[in-house]
Design a protein around this nucleic acid. Structure first.
Lengths: 270, 270
DNA sequence: TAGATCTGTGTATTACTTACACAGTAACGT
DNA sequence: ACGTTACTGTGTAAGTAATACACAGATCTA
């Protein structure tokens, strides 16, 4: 820890942390019995099993069979540990490049992969993180997403902007969905129950005058108060995301076509 | 507090909380000197001034000139207080309906309004919240967004899905941006510094073989390592969001046209 | 083998949420 | 008017958390 790095900048320091560039290997003293990876792995396992709020330094240490303070030999602070967890949680290979040129399918595959990742580590959407991906895993996923998006004909800069929006939308959508699932489970309800409860709650405060469109939604039973018990099928959250993403990809398509039609001379203006 | 409500459901209880439906007015005893609104307002003011991490029950109480425990007469838990803050923070009227039928301008106006809201209360993106809007302010914004989106010709259900994606994307994008701004300020850097630091950090770990597209981005100086000091102009975050949103709206447009062309008989399938 | 360096531990500090009992106050029923 | 009841804000204490600091012992270097 506390290396001789001159990483002036916060982002630069984060890169160093995530790539282990700040760990000078010790030349003397006892062999370390733990490692940064072991600590982070234990934290990830704990978060997987009991959620992010179970992850305290004391608890992680106990899980490893060491004292609380021993962790601080491997990690400067809990905050750093969380940063490391964020990259460690992206522990799956992003989809490989496709043979055909179907970039839309490529992007959708990427999205499915990302959703799987979040579902595997639901705590990761709650990390108090603050920046674009910097770690090895994060950059791998970023690279894969950019690759698919540029195949649409988008220039790299625009692809980056679309990917940022897409990731943001995914992450926050899943945050809400996963949190609702957890709350439902905790209360012994099904997700359909929860959704119905939302509808029932809204009905008590939504009037046609004040909220005409929401009122319309309630009348058309969008929140499934009258729906059967099954959940996750058509109309489930996965479908919701898919629909919105398809519109986004439509938009990319017409943009690229329009650019191409304009003889790619007009620059990047709308 | 602890009303006689039978709100079985978590979402239902949240609606009750946010609309004050759970507060039976006391018939005896001393007049309450505080109120739920006062507590929440103090918490919001504190968060505005010093960030969400400064908001502890002790600190809010001190700000009000009361003891910590007095707050619990007005709020069941800190978690409830945060939920109340989330709605209280949306303290601006959403844009009014436009005269002309320009739904795209309407949506973009809505987005600008939402961004202003987040900028005014930067802490709100860090609230550990978990669900669609339920409070008076949240529903007002939701209604306004749905109104604009349905003007595109989208049915209410699809408009809801698009709005969810849009809000999610906005929220998470701003979360990252605001957090980077804060970190930059805290470290005495400018945002341009931070962005440059990101680029510099990436350069240390990104190879053309492993990350060809990211490498391309670095070569084209997307992260402004060579750029002048000004920030927030063209290429700034606001522009990034705008670009992505315009693609999204393009997508909505072609979808609506396609539906219309299909004689609106084929239902909601792609 | 002496000295420098590193590890894991124990202890203490500070801050946080919240349960609980209590003293005082205002309205209600008689 | 007056006791009863319901409610207020307070004080105290329990339990958990992050982490600074000093130390005993281990291991390498000279």
């Amino acid at each position: 820890m506390a290396a001789e790095q001159q990483g002036t900048n916060r982002m630069e320091r984060e890169v160093e942390l995530l790539w282990g560039l700040d760990q000078p290997e010790p030349r003397r003293g006892p062999k370390p019995k733990l490692s940064r990876e072991a600590v982070v792995a234990a934290a990830v396992a704990l978060a997987d099993a009991e959620g992010l709020e179970a992850v305290s330094m004391q608890r992680v240490a106990k899980e490893l069979g060491y004292t609380t303070m021993s962790l601080y030999r491997y990690v400067d602070s809990k905050e750093d540990m969380l940063v490391l967890m964020s990259d460690a949680g992206m522990d799956a290979e992003p989809p490989a490049p496709r043979g055909d040129g179907d970039w839309r399918a490529g992007v959708e595959e990427w999205v499915r992969g990302a959703v799987d990742l979040y579902r595997r580590h639901p705590w990761s959407v709650h990390l108090p993180l603050s920046g674009p991906p910097s770690g090895p895993n994060g950059l791998r996923w970023m690279e894969a997403g950019l690759r698919e998006l540029t195949h649409s004909g988008l220039d790299a800069g625009s692809a980056l902007r679309m990917l940022m929006m897409l990731s943001a939308a995914l992450r926050d959508t899943l945050r809400i969905e996963l949190e609702m699932e957890r709350a439902a489970r905790a209360g012994g309800e099904t997700m359909a129950d929860t959704e119905r409860g939302y509808g029932r709650g809204l009905r008590r405060v939504v009037t046609e005058e004040a909220f005409p469109t929401i009122d319309l939604l309630l009348r058309s039973d969008v929140f499934g108060e009258l729906a059967p018990e099954e959940y996750g099928g058509a109309g489930g959250p996965a479908d919701d995301i898919d629909f919105a993403i398809r519109r986004l990809l439509d938009g990319v398509e017409v943009y690229v076509e329009r650019q191409r039609a304009a003889g790619r001379s007009a620059g990047k203006g709308e």
